Simulated assay, not measured.
Amino acid sequence: MAGAVMELSSGHKMPALGLGVWRAEPEVLKEIIPRALELGYRHFDCAADYKNEAEVGEALALAFKQGLVKREDVFITTKLWNSDHGHVKEACLDSLKKLQLDYLDLYLIHFPVATKHTGVGTTGSAVGEDGMLEIDVTISLQSTWHAMEELVEAGIVRSIGISNYDIFLTADCLAYSKIKPAVNQIETHPYFQRHDLVKFCQKHGIVVTAHTPLGGGAANEEWFGYKSPLEDPLFLELAKKYEKTPAQVMLRWGLQRNTSVIPKSSKAKRLEENIDIFDFQLSDEEIKKISQVDKKLRSNQPARFWGIDLYA
């Protein structure tokens, strides 16, 4: 297993560096997953909404069959979609079937919102005639969380967590939980550092996983008009100093914040670069400089598709 591991409140360990499969085209995953395993990746971050769990499952099953890794060698995360909050167990079993697994290492509530059910595993985002997301106000996050806890008790999930929760929603979850969330997966990167949320989670024993740890790159620039921190002069300067790429410097920064990072890539060269971040360390002064580039700028804006800003 390459690199550091994070101790979860559940008693299990999670590799600090993982590979996210959001936007990964299903047909290329059969090449990406084995290559990532060969390079040392052992943490794979999936979601029902990514619509590629079946392809990830096929690649993993083949890797297990060929003896490339054993099931216990890998850490697999997937997520409950908004429209399945009232069908937690069924959605989890659907993901397990697609991933060809007997258990999940980590299951997350993808967003803190329940929406109109569109069929287990269909991951729809029903939008009404008014153009606004159809939020199901009859389902509470508390009831969803208790259903998540039942998955642990049933032995089909080892750790449970949340995603895209702010401080207040995280505090609420801690208040009503029997099993506290092991992870909060949030968008955080140098232009959206969210120090208070990160510190709050860590104070209460919740590991923070940084999705979009590089600011989303070209895709988010195209979709949301966002400018990536990869082009920031500070990261270009640090990359030159350490003979690394700006992305490698950012990922190293993420690890030194004691967060887990799950960069996404389907390119072999990037896969190699993203895991090659354990042979250097940023100084305290450099960490301080990075803290000063924060623009408090969210790169991912689901309001564009949902007609309502859930972060308002």
Rank of each mutant, 00 (worst) to 15 (best):
4 A>E: 15
14 M>V: 02
16 A>T: 05
19 L>I: 06
19 L>G: 06
33 I>H: 00
38 E>Y: 04
38 E>T: 14
39 L>Y: 07
39 L>M: 10
42 R>Y: 00
55 E>T: 03
76 I>N: 00
76 I>H: 00
81 W>A: 00
82 N>S: 14
82 N>F: 08
84 D>Y: 02
88 V>D: 02
89 K>I: 02
93 L>H: 06
96 L>T: 02
97 K>N: 10
99 L>A: 01
99 L>V: 00
101 L>A: 00
104 L>A: 01
110 H>I: 06
116 K>E: 15
117 H>R: 09
117 H>S: 12
118 T>A: 07
119 G>F: 09
123 T>Q: 05
128 G>R: 15
131 G>C: 05
136 D>C: 10
138 T>R: 11
141 L>I: 15
142 Q>T: 10
145 W>V: 11
156 I>M: 08
157 V>G: 05
172 D>M: 14
173 C>H: 10
177 S>I: 08
182 A>Q: 06
187 E>F: 03
193 Q>D: 13
203 K>V: 04
204 H>Y: 12
207 V>S: 06
208 V>Y: 10
212 T>Q: 08
215 G>S: 09
232 D>K: 06
233 P>A: 09
234 L>G: 05
234 L>W: 02
245 T>E: 02
258 N>V: 07
258 N>Y: 14
264 K>M: 10
270 R>Q: 13
279 D>F: 02
284 D>Y: 06
296 K>Q: 14
296 K>R: 13
297 L>M: 12
298 R>P: 11
302 P>W: 10
303 A>T: 10
